[in-house]
Amino acid sequence: MGLLDLFRRTPPSAHVAKERLRIIVAQERGNRGGPDYLPLLRRELLEVIRKYVNVDPDAIQVNLEREDGHEVLELSVALPEKMRA
């Protein structure tokens, strides 16, 4: 890096790229191999829950886990802070 670069450089962006990729790749790998209906199921569940509680789109996790011979559909909803009070 040169002295003049200090004045004209844009802030380094590679670490932002890496973080974004790390998250999206992990998420997509998690959905991989699962049935195609999972994303839709997740969206519809979100709509239903939102009728009653205003939750964040990221607050719903739908996972399908395979454990020796049987499958477990795991649904986890994080409710907003003030709801719990």
Partner: peptide, 17 residues
């Protein structure tokens, strides 16, 4: 560009994938 932090490095891509 990797040295100036503008581009993902070999190590970054290797780690992600």
């Amino acid at each position: 560009r990797v040295a100036t932090g503008e581009m993902l490095s070999v190590t970054d891509v290797k780690e992600i994938l």
